[in-house]
Design a protein around this nucleic acid. Structure first.
Length: 875
RNA sequence: GCCCGUGUGGUGGAAUGGUAGACACGAACGACUCAAAAUCGUUUGCUUAACGGCAUGCCAGUUCGAGUCUGGCCACGGGUACCA
């Protein structure tokens, strides 16, 4: 409001200049106009089932969490997707490009606790704000398909799917550990555990065992691994990360008899990938959650204390693995299946109960972690693998374990065998004496989907003392969240609700309790892409629509989702396929992962974070705080975050420069898979370029021949060559997500059009019309404005035009510049007509003055000629 | 810790194993202007008087030729199963 008053006053006091302003593109007026033109024409509507007249193309960006306002990461993500969507439409595809909201999650509950806003109200308000912001960006989205995962019409269908997973044997109840805050009486997410303490209460975190729902993703482990080979339009690194995460490994399970049974336990089983090194054993280590650890703790308070300490690390693998490696001897001993000797059983904080059997045998000479542990606790380090060429008499392990392949020694019947033979022989021996067997182990664990939270999809199950966990009957779905919930009490508001959970058992009618856990929000995002194909259906998906549109042809989102979201979606899709909802086993045929958006952050001398508009740049590249004039510390390349106050609000950028400029800068700055830095200078540079394109077009239209005039043979040859080369180059760049290169080629094109001048009107018209169409996917509003200047009598929209074709004969060059090297160093260049024969090229190159000086009379031993590229003389 | 990436001028970056720095931002100077904004032009990796030399995180290697391929380091980023 204050801003508007100031603006009016300054307009009144400063009169308009007398001479006319040069033509200036008024984005504020033009952008809404073109957006409404696209909507009126229905440019972005896709049929429920494509009619087959055009190939289908499903473009999808990862849907946003409605956190409040859109941020630059969203602008980048949705701009990238929009370029693809618009480009594919121009290439003749039937494109579906939907948008929705990943609307359940923790921040809404945090807002409820901190500010007393109901999560639903907070979420739907955020959605309204963010939808408006996305619409201002001019994205070619089909808003008719929009939904939020917190809509009962969505999560009710998800509940149906869960019941089908149960029926198919793909959901089960198991016990698992959670982070427990004993002061707030609440389960903590890993990110809410800071240095082993609850983020709000500061209490030391405990681990607590809860009975929870799991989806059986491990049943699909072999398929999920093998399926990666079919994803040839996924980044290699994402496939690698997923393969490592699934973690197939071949090895053995080995059973060790306890020397003396403890609490009825007589054996402990370990998993190892190196059964060949069993003779290098020094100790056996179990996880703190292992039954043997519990048995040992029951007799020794020091062990119990150690286990408590280990539990205070919480459940995050990063925290556990980075903690100092520690252990405690239980006093229990086990017998070696091969040599009959006994070894101590330790409890170690780096052994994970979730992996393998929760127990390992320690071979310090062949495993670095075991070696560090053995050195720390002074355990023996018997070497058993001899590196190639080493002397068995003198070989000893220092501080580095030998983990490569070698020859076994000190290993009884395995002596002399290589690593692979040794593994096989050890497994044969284990199987022969019934002490173990060869197995394939997977790192992947089942997917725990229970969350002790309110703002999520209720798990549609009723617990009955007599009937157990009973599915909610179909006719009682959806199980809707109660609205009257109390966030002032600690714990799960659903569980605290006075009446909601009390229901009759659908099986026997006796009083029973609703499940008060809700689903992990990754469940919501594991099938939304399928729901978009039939967003209003009374079934989760309509097979005809899903099978016609899926898989997603191009999925775009952050690299941070490389494993969890993408793997869960792949699993869920396989589940849906096995239950007949759809056919494709893989949800995303093409994947592009974008980098983050960063911005410089500023810190004052007294340590306060300053927002970008609170500082001013100085001549030396530094900055000062505007209010105080004191210099500030600048840190470049910081992830945009509220805590560092370095976020740039896309809304204010669009107000200032327009949507096209924001889109153009974000595309031009760097390759989209890298992290980018938002800079003021870059944004204003992009704004200048968009004005320049408009000016060039507006300035030329008066002198152009009528539309459709073909350039005469040979006229405007140079400009036409640039035009057709640019079409080819931009097309290639868009196909490969090299959007920053497309922008560079368009800059060069603009330079060439301006340099060409006005004389060849038809070639100039061709160039300008091509320009409007090439920038169409990137700056769609400006493209329409240019097109309407160039074709004032037509009603066609760039959004409806076909992509320009490059004429190879017009794009061809007739001469080429070769680099001439002597001993690989550049000494001269040589311009020759295309197709000059090799002998002539060598003769011309050798005659060159600089080349002669470099050769310095030495005899030429070898002549290398790569046509069109280089000549190299080896002397 | 483990898995996966990234590293090129003042800045963002370009470059099928073949002229490193395209294109842009910034800066400096100039034109236009009473002045400014806008716009246009010139210069701009380091070094050298010049010839030339040195330059793609660091150290090796393969090759006629390496930013690109291989090995070993360093720094930074993503993930690490309850942030989304």
């Amino acid at each position: 409001m204050n801003d508007a008053v100031t603006a009016n006053r300054s307009e009144n006091t400063r009169p308009e200049p007398a001479r006319p302003e040069p033509a200036r593109y008024d984005f504020a007026q033009a952008e809404p106009r073109w957006q409404s033109a696209w909507n009126t024409q229905g440019c972005f509507r896709a049929p429920d089932v494509p009619d087959g007249s055009k190939p289908k193309y499903y473009v999808l960006e990862m849907f946003p969490y409605p956190s409040g306002k859109i941020h630059m990461g969203h602008v980048r993500n949705y701009t990238l997707g929009d370029v693809v969507a618009r480009y594919k439409r121009a290439r003749g595809h039937q494109v579906m490009h939907p948008m929705g909201w990943d609307a359940f999650g923790l921040p809404a509950e945090n807002a409820a606790r901190e500010r007393g806003v109901h999560p639903a109200k907070w979420t739907y308000q955020n959605i309204a704000t963010m939808r408006a912001e996305l619409q201002r960006m001019g994205l070619s989205l089909e808003w008719e398909r929009e939904f939020a995962t917190c809509d009962p019409s969505y999560y009710g269908q998800q509940q149906k799917l869960f019941l089908e997973f149960m029926k198919a044997g793909l959901a089960e109840r198991k016990e698992s550990w959670v982070n427990w805050d004993p002061v707030d009486n609440t389960v903590l997410a890993n990110e809410q555990v800071i240095d082993g303490r609850g983020w709000r209460s500061g209490a030391l975190v405990e681990k607590k065992k809860l009975s929870q729902w799991f989806l059986s993703i491990t049943k699909f482990a072999p398929e999920l691994l093998a399926g990666l080979d079919t994803l040839d339009r996924w980044p290699e690194r994402v496939r690698l990360m997923q393969a490592n995460w699934i973690g197939r490994s071949e090895g053995a399970r080995v059973r060790f008899d306890l020397e003396t049974p403890v609490d009825g336990l007589t054996q402990v089983e370990v998993f190892t990938t190196r059964p060949d090194t069993l003779f290098g054993m020094s100790f056996l280590a179990v996880a703190a959650e292992h039954p043997l650890a519990a048995a040992a703790a029951a007799r020794n308070p020091r062990i119990a204390e150690f286990i408590t300490e280990v539990r205070s690390l919480g459940t995050s693998e990063a925290a556990i693995e980075q903690a100092e490696k520690r252990g405690i001897d239980t006093g229990i001993r086990v017998k070696h299946p091969f040599n009959g000797q006994t070894y101590p059983v330790w409890i170690a904080n780096f052994v994970l109960m979730e992996y393998g059997t929760g127990a390992i045998f320690g071979c310090p000479s062949g495993d670095q972690r075991d070696l560090d542990f053995a050195r720390k606790y002074d355990l023996p380090v018997p070497p058993v693998v001899l590196p190639p060429g080493a002397d068995p008499a003198s070989f000893a392990i220092g501080d580095t374990a030998f983990t490569d392949d070698g020859t076994l020694f000190n290993s009884d019947f395995l002596d002399g065998k290589g690593t692979a033979d040794g593994k096989r022989a050890a497994i044969d021996a284990l199987e022969a004496q019934g002490a173990g067997q060869g197995v394939v182990n997977w790192r992947l664990r089942d997917w725990g989907v229970s969350r002790q939270r309110y703002w999520g999809c209720p798990i549609p199950v009723i617990h009955c003392d007599d009937c157990g966990a009973v599915p909610v009957p179909q006719d009682q779905l959806p199980v809707v969240l109660p609205e009257d919930v109390d966030f002032s009490k600690p714990g799960n508001p659903l569980d605290n609700h006075p009446t909601w959970k009390h229901v009759a058992c659908p099986g026997c009618g006796k009083p029973a309790r609703r499940e008060t856990d809700t689903f992990d929000t990754f469940v919501d995002s594991s099938w939304y892409f399928a729901r978009f194909t039939s967003p209003k259906a009374e079934t989760p998906v309509v097979p005809a629509a899903a099978n016609a549109w899926l898989p997603v042809d191009q999925y775009i989102g952050g690299i941070e989702h490389a494993i969890l979201h993408l793997l869960y979606s792949r699993f869920f899709t396989r589940g849906l396929a096995s239950m007949g909802h759809l056919k494709t086993p893989e949800p995303f045929a093409g994947l592009f992962t974008q980098g983050m958006v960063q911005h410089a952050s500023y810190k004052s001398q007294d340590g306060r974070w300053l927002a970008p508009d609170e500082v001013e740049p100085t001549a030396d590249g530094g900055a000062v705080e505007t209010a105080t004039g004191l210099s500030v510390t600048i840190s470049r390349n910081d992830k945009m975050s509220k805590s560092k106050r370095n976020t740039i609000d896309p809304g204010s950028i669009i107000d200032r420069y327009g949507a096209d400029t924001a889109r153009w800068f974000i595309l031009s700055d760097n390759p989209p898979d890298r992290d980018m830095e938002w800079t003021e200078a870059g944004a204003s540079g992009a704004a200048r370029f968009s004005q320049r394109l408009y000016r060039t077009t507006a300035g030329a239209v008066g002198s152009l021949p009528v539309p459709g005039t073909m350039p005469a043979e040979g006229v405007g040859r140079d400009l036409r060559r640039v035009t057709h080369r640019t079409i080819a180059a931009v097309t290639e760049a868009l196909e490969t997500f090299a959007f920053n290169v497309a922008v560079a080629r368009i800059h060069e094109f603009a330079n060439a059009i301006e340099a060409a001048g006005a004389e060849d009107g038809a070639a100039r018209r061709e160039a300008l019309e091509t320009m409007a169409r090439l920038v169409g996917p990137m700056m769609p509003h400006l493209a329409e404005e240019m097109w309407s200047l160039l074709r004032p009598d037509e009603k066609t929209l760039v959004a409806q035009l076909a992509w320009p074709e490059s004429d190879a004969s017009l794009a061809a060059a007739d001469s080429v510049t070769l680099a001439v090297q002597v001993l690989g160093k550049l000494r001269s260049t040589l311009a020759v007509p295309i197709g000059t024969d090799e002998a002539t090229v060598f003769a011309l190159a050798e005659a060159d003055e600089n080349v002669q000086r470099a050769i310095a009379g030495r005899p030429i031993r070898k002549r290398i000629h790569v046509p069109g590229r280089i000549v190299n003389f080896v002397v």
